[in-house]
């Protein structure tokens, strides 16, 4: 018999949801504000960093992944991983094209 019954349904309280909403709104304000400051190469990094943080919050709390089974976590991980392969390896080709021939 398996003990880890993943469907011990965890009900997330409205308080948590409200906190996340607040965090998301703050994140949105931050990202708009940051885009007006000239930080050079840091600009896109900050923008993407904030976006990733917001997305993670949504996935973990609104989508309940924090309270879900390992399988769900693995599924999310697999999606991100394959996405990274697609983006990463394609971009690698474009960047190395600029290096020219050896």
């Amino acid at each position: 018999m398996s003990e880890h019954q993943e469907h011990e349904h965890h009900i997330v309280s409205p308080k948590v949801y409200a906190t996340i909403l607040l965090a998301l709104l703050v994140g949105t304000a931050l990202t708009v504000w940051a885009s007006y400051i000239d930080l050079g190469i840091l600009n896109p990094i900050i923008a993407l960093g904030i976006a990733c943080t917001k997305a993670t919050l949504v996935v973990l709390f609104f989508m309940h992944v924090k309270y879900s089974s390992k399988l769900t976590k693995l599924t999310v991980g697999a999606g991100v991983f394959t996405f990274m392969i697609l983006v990463g390896m394609t971009l690698a080709d474009y960047f190395t094209r600029a290096w020219g021939r050896w």
Binding site: M89, A92, D93, Y94, T96, R97, W99, R101, W102
Partner: peptide, 14 residues
């Protein structure tokens, strides 16, 4: 996947 594109103009390193 890019082994289908060796002669298509992808970078040498790829």
């Amino acid at each position: 996947w890019a082994h289908h594109m060796f002669i298509m103009g992808i970078s040498n390193y790829s």
